[in-house]
Write a protein that binds this DNA or RNA. Structure first.
Lengths: 214, 214, 214, 214
DNA sequence: CATGAATGAGGATTCATTCAT
DNA sequence: AATGAATGAATCCTCATTCAT
């Protein structure tokens, strides 16, 4: 969870709900105009609050950004942890399922995904570290699946980091390269193509299932 | 070429060299501090010019950004066109060579690559379109190689867009996810792993060469 | 007495006690951080009240300041009136006693003394006049002693205003120039030195008692 | 001298003259409305500049305040150093001359004198120290005269700090208590009364000249 | 062509005060 | 009588851009 640090307002439930509203509004504006081009006043007004009120829920503009990051990363991490429970021992199937879920989550949080690429550097050091730590935890989920596949001699023993971050890159691309994909590939086609490529790409014996049957 | 639009100064050679200097300086500053956190004054001073002078070579701050994008994209496109000449008919080998070159170019222009992700939205519509058009041309190079592979029934007939942009995503990741890769994978290891994964991943018969022989 | 103007709350005793508490808290904060750097919210919280409540006891922030001034000036005036009762006819002795009491009171209300110098101008015209009137009354106490001394030809016939305000300046300096005096002079040494200087300084025949016998 | 720290503008002479103008304007406004109640915009506009320009000459509002302090303290210190050259060996006469000059300087810089009392606390630590150091140097000038008088057994051996700061307090009072003195005492009467009181007040043998013959 | 002083719109943030509960 | 959430004017400061020299 993101460090609380809400000024003035004491009603925790109110704080939570207002923060959510504001974050949602801000996310849209940040994506539409960019973080710097979006003024705090715009956020407040779009959310139907006064500037003063906004600052009762976030202490700085940057905190809004951090909150957005934290909130969605949490959802993604939880979503993946959830699917982890359901995974069988077959690395092929496990990775396919995890990838499917990951791509679904990214699809659901496209704006957030792009925003991380764009405005990560606008965070302060502490926030940066938090975001990176969380991202590392998310990557570790795939890392463990792949390592188990390597241990079982199903996957090739390639540098896990390279593979794991390729997974992230390919997933994120669904959000960052929408301009190219929109209209040419559906989410399902995208999933099938990428899952196939990744699975077949890292499998030890090129032979076997043609993957993609997810 | 980037739309001209240099004010006042007539000497074309001077304009070109000054622009290059300024762009190089600006790229470093943008990467170090971010586009918005970098002031035009800083760029000018770091480059050893006066603010007034800078505005003789670029009409707006945004134009500097656009110039940087355009310049590096041109180098990348040319670098790929170059390698295209040398490609034989074997799609496997062709793709491997093109990928290798592409990853090399991205490694050489990491700052630029990251900057595109971060500040693309700061461009105006015209500039955006130009950058996207160029990116599409770059992608088309891979597109043609892959299509030819599909035609020869070497590659699986998956949506080309998905594959092509996966190539981009994986390449860019070398720049955008340095924080994760630095220290764990060398450029050569990275190249080998990704080229293998991509080739094996899209090949029709999973069997065959184990890739990586680049 | 300070002009009433307490809103809403009717219970006079409650009003008085709350005002005292708030004023005491505010005085400390004003001295520590400055009047402008202290927010009403801080005052309320430090005093253990809600902002809303505070505004039931003071209508404006300025009114708090005014109240502090008024309250302490009253104490000082009363303290001096008190000593006036005990004064004998000897102007030398009378002045010495009054000065001693005055310096003691200032020592006890250093924060207030400094605050008057700093934030007098933050009062509105009416409040300013009230504070000045009270200060004049305090000065008059010394004025009358000195005039009586002049009439008895014990003190030199110098402009009384000059002498009287020198007394104030010297007394206040114990508070305003603490940075210089702290650690070098004790209150008693200070008193002895200043009383001696003042008495000997205004006495008609420089000769006579060497003062300091306070 | 005040640490330079002027941004942007390079023409040193221009910086100096603009700073003087701005400081003069600011001093008036600060005195009339108070430091906090005066906006930077007001200062700029009153001085006939744009806000942006003002910030080419001072980096912060506080720096203006510091500059004002520094500038006038320098004048006062120099003025006293000057008179030091002309002093003979007679402590009585020396002190009388120094006091006369000091009171004259304070009269000439009343606004500054009051402002120090009011807004000293608005300075940051470094600036505070600078102002105090300078004030100490000014006090030392009187300190040395008095000590020499004590050494020659002309003045009583009272704590020098107490006397020296009484001098300051009495001098400053001409500025801080104008509201009481204006109209009742002229500068010359004030000087004569205070010089007499101080000299006679600290002299060893109450006898001797009746002072005031300045 | 170069310089650098001037501009002023615009941004984030604070805070005294109000008022519905 | 107490609470504390809401308000929005006002503040300091930055920075891209212009233009006289």
């Amino acid at each position: 969870m993101l460090a609380p640090a809400a000024p003035t307002v004491k009603d925790a439930a109110l704080v939570e709900s207002r923060r959510r509203e504001l974050a949602a509004t801000a996310l849209q504006l940040f994506r539409a105009r960019g973080y710097h081009a979006t003024s705090v006043r715009q956020i407040a007004e779009t959310a139907g609050l006064s500037v003063g009120s906004l600052f009762n829920y976030f202490r700085t503009k940057e905190q809004i950004l951090h909150f957005i990051y934290d909130q969605t990363q949490a959802v993604i991490e939880e979503g993946l942890q959830e699917v982890l429970q359901e995974l069988g021992p077959d690395p092929d199937e496990a990775l396919a399922l995890a990838l499917d879920r990951y791509f679904t989550l990214i699809d659901r949080h496209q704006d957030h995904t792009v925003l991380v690429y764009q405005e990560f550097k606008s965070l302060d050091r502490r926030a940066k570290r938090q975001v990176i730590d969380r991202e590392r935890r998310i990557m570790d989920i795939f890392g463990r699946i792949i390592e188990s596949g390597i241990a079982r001699e199903v996957f090739r023993p390639h540098p896990v980091a390279a593979t794991v971050h390729a997974v992230a890159a390919i997933g994120h691309m669904w959000a960052t390269r929408r301009w190219a994909l929109r209209g040419t590939v559906t989410l399902d086609e995208f999933k099938r193509a990428q899952v196939t490529m990744i699975l077949q790409g890292i499998r030890r014996h090129g032979a076997g299932q043609e993957g993609g049957d997810v």
